[in-house]
Amino acid sequence: MSMARTPAPLRTLVLAFDGVNLLDIGGPLQALEASEARKGASEHYETIVASVRGGEIRTSTGMPIVTQQLTGIDPATIDTVIVGGGSANGRPIVPADLVEWIAANEAAFRRVCSICAGAFVLAATGLLAGRRATTHWHWAKLLQAENPEIAVEPDSIWVNDGRMWTSAGVTAGIDLTLALIEQDYGHRIAIEAARRLVVFMKRPGGQSQFSVPLLFQSRGDDGFAELHAWMRQNLTGDLRVNRLAAQAGMSERSFGRLYTARMGETPARAVEAMRAEAACGLLESTALSAKQVAAAAGFGDEQNLRRVFVRRFGVNPAEYRQRFAAGGI
């Protein structure tokens, strides 16, 4: 009786260059390694780190890494390409010789991916033309301005359009790689890899690069950081404006005016945003019913939860869970 043939590991090429962000290389590599159930078992991936000239390249941290030379690699043997990002002198680094190599060989690859400012490398090859893509929020406007043919999604953690995958900055490369693992080997393997990495949650690509607290901080959170922390801890409590004003030690009228001026939105909208974020996390990571999620996130009842989700996200809670829970619950 013939034995079932073990599938060959998927060969993944991680492209580096002088000035590349270290975590753009190390993050995906570590995530791929974390997909292996145990040492000695059949491997899911064979990884190669390469550069145009080969040998030692210096990352953005100054730490050198050793790479293989691209001319010694047969593109036909490569399943997936991942290119990291880097910047110098206030601009993303786009090595012309690397762009040329990718453009000349891209037809051989099943998937082509970028991490962070690596999207500028893929943009230079023309592979992102007419497609959706993302990059680190700092570079998103520049990517769009210089490449109007690309539909840049500045708030997404990662974007998949056909065989092209792009991600936001730094740790978002891990999120993208977990999504690749899920596509290749299923949700269970991807979640197990996330647990080995001690990643709190495998974040879907449609999620924002900013959590609500980070978004508030980016707007100038001076004077309200403690209030926001208290709000997050009391989402199921009374968070009406008069209660928030009392917590902040201000009159209701002064608080409402100052908060809106500093944060760019009313206190009520801020409360709603925090509760919506909490509800998203529960829908993604638990099997709680919509009614239970509504109560746990502070919305009170399912109708309020549904109304907020349709207005903010364009989908109801059930549709959100179907899209983002990825079959894991």
Rank of each mutant, 00 (worst) to 15 (best):
Q68T: 06
Q69D: 11
L70H: 05
L70I: 03
L70D: 09
I73K: 02
I73L: 13
D74P: 00
A76I: 10
I78Y: 07
T80E: 13
V81L: 13
V81G: 10
V81N: 04
I82M: 12
G85W: 06
G86H: 04
G86V: 06
N89A: 15
G90K: 01
R91N: 10
I93E: 14
I93A: 07
I93N: 09
P95R: 06
P95I: 10
P95L: 12
A96M: 08
D97V: 12
L98D: 11
W101P: 00
N105W: 07
N105K: 03
E106V: 11
A107N: 12
A108F: 12
A108L: 01
F109N: 11
R110S: 13
R110W: 01
C113Y: 04
G118R: 02
A119G: 04
A119M: 03
F120G: 05
F120D: 11
V121T: 15
A123H: 00
A123Q: 06
A123S: 07
A124S: 11
G126F: 07
L128Y: 13
L128N: 11
R131Y: 11
R131P: 04
R132W: 07
A133S: 05
A133H: 01
A133Y: 03
T135P: 00
H136M: 07
H136I: 10
W137N: 10
W137K: 04
A140V: 10
A140D: 09
K141A: 15
L143M: 07
Q144K: 14
